[in-house]
Write a protein that binds this DNA or RNA. Sequence first.
DNA 1: GCATAATAGCTGCCAAAGCAGTAAGTGCCG
DNA 2: CGGCACTTACTGCTTTGGCAGCTATTATGC
Lengths: 161, 161
Amino acid sequence: MSKQHYRVSTYKAQLSVGYLVKRAHSLMLDIMEPVIEQRGFSFIQYVVLTCLNDGIAVNPKDICTQYRHDSGALTRVIDQLAERGLLERVRRDRDRRKVELQLTPAGRETIESLIPLVVDKLNEVLTDFSKAEVQELLRLLVKLNTTLQAHIDPAAMAAEA
Amino acid sequence: MSKQHYRVSTYKAQLSVGYLVKRAHSLMLDIMEPVIEQRGFSFIQYVVLTCLNDGIAVNPKDICTQYRHDSGALTRVIDQLAERGLLERVRRDRDRRKVELQLTPAGRETIESLIPLVVDKLNEVLTDFSKAEVQELLRLLVKLNTTLQAHIDPAAMAAEA
DNA sequence: GCATAATAGCTGCCAAAGCAGTAAGTGCCG
DNA sequence: CGGCACTTACTGCTTTGGCAGCTATTATGC
């Protein structure tokens, strides 16, 4: 059933999708982290703020699944952001297990000041890529993520569809 | 100079290359780690063995730069593998700072038994992709890595060319 | 309606990566 | 030749993520 994209006899890790995405992730972090940290935030703090700002997620759980971050670790990041007055935890009556995370005005201001830095840097590092290449890369990565996700948790994917 | 692949006004993290490669890396690990661990090895141990088997790297330093792994952490992984008799540290007179890592027969046997598992799994998860798609994904990822690397360390890249 | 399972968030603990500093060795330049 | 910068590997310390367990709450099945 599965295609022979790779063969045992010719397999080199350097051309494995796994290796390449790991390396890309690592390099991307090395470039982006300093940008964020020069403003006094850790990268994961920026990620949480972004999720809230984009409306991708409102609960810690959402961020965990979206960004694949540990639930316990995330609690502590949220603590830090709450302490700095950038977001608030709100318990809703709808489902009292859930915590709704709300950006404060200060939080919104913060994330809006960070996004331009990230966008500029992204555009800078992608200068050598044509628009078509970026589009195709994004498409393939989205497809890869969807496929991998389905492999890990088929039930959840079926439910979503 | 830099193109406008992303714009501040429309930026959503979900379509950021950084986010997508991070997620892909995480998902790939979740799939591959169990495969390796069922044979009693951590994923990073497998990576080290692979580097040596492919001849990509012979010194710890090589593996660090190739796989972007911390030097200190790597020393300890090598300790584990040496303890299990899978590789040996050899000091060469050529440059006595360097340590040459050599797979033992047992080490070679081990990695050769692991590779088919990884290749099969890779092919399995990439079933939905056409050959052309995989080729294009690899090409774009390699290009991305090269570009990012050049951004981080322009001197080293220039020297290599 | 009640018992059981499942979910969300949190806490403490542990293992592993990241970081800075050290020591041995090499290359460079006066 | 001697000094200084740089490289390589390694070692402790710190920080962080990953994991298991806990509580509160909600959903499910009988």
